[in-house]
Amino acid sequence: MNAVAQYNFAYLDEQTKRMIRRAILKAIAIPGYQVPFSSREMPMPYGWGTGGVQVTASIIGPDDVLKVIDQGADDTTNAVSIRAFFAKVAQVETTTHTADATIIQTRHRIPEKPLGQGQILVYQVPIPEPLRFLEPRETETRKMHALEEYGLMHVKLYEDIARHGRIATTYAYPVKVEGRYVMDPSPTPKFDNPKMHMSAALQLFGAGREHRIYAVPPYTEVVSLDFEDHPFTIQHFEEPCALCGAEQVYLDEVILDDRGGHMYVCSDTDNCEERRSAGHVGTLGMQEAAE
């Protein structure tokens, strides 16, 4: 026991990786379909990205360059922790630059910069089943997917409009993949949904606690559910990023005082830094320059 256990490359044993790769291949072959897999206990808690970590561990090779983000940022604690895990057990090169990464593991965001061919985006998924909160039973939801019975999904959207005058789902907004399976995009804001459509990158989704893997292959149709007369729209921010002046990006609200003072900054920290080093400045940057 004192002989510290020798861990395999990327932690998982090869047999487990093969099993997960088989599940990934099946998921790619049936876009949007949730493939059951025998999720392993990982050295981080269920619900903290074990699904994404298992997917990444199964596909990563020594030549890969890994980026890990949480809430769009490379420096959030859980992203730091997962990146450090792979740096240790796989000794791979890590980066914060979206363009340099071959594998990007993410929680809750898709990078602003469009992904390219050869890149893989690995999502951490808490609840893979888009029908779960309408029908808690796995045995029943499986049947609904098999028979393409998705009327209930629209019932939910109908209720939103009847009650709030609009579709009130703002994240984990359900999509239909390649005209067949309704899929949960994981709790990304609906702002990111259009980025999934016809993406050049391979998108893999891992739900460890729920034992499911699903995928959106490159150049696949991903359509957000809506009504003709209440079409899907994404969030729009009134002001640009205070640091880099970016518009049409997703922003975090930062509270500055207890009198309602706040500012907006980029959620995608890498994109923000890149813009600033290219000379873009926001209102805050201008203040700085003036001082």
Partner: peptide, 12 residues
């Protein structure tokens, strides 16, 4: 864990 991206969407 941080959920501020989702929370921002709800807040908005």
């Amino acid at each position: 864990l941080p959920h501020y991206v989702d929370f921002q969407a709800e807040l908005d």
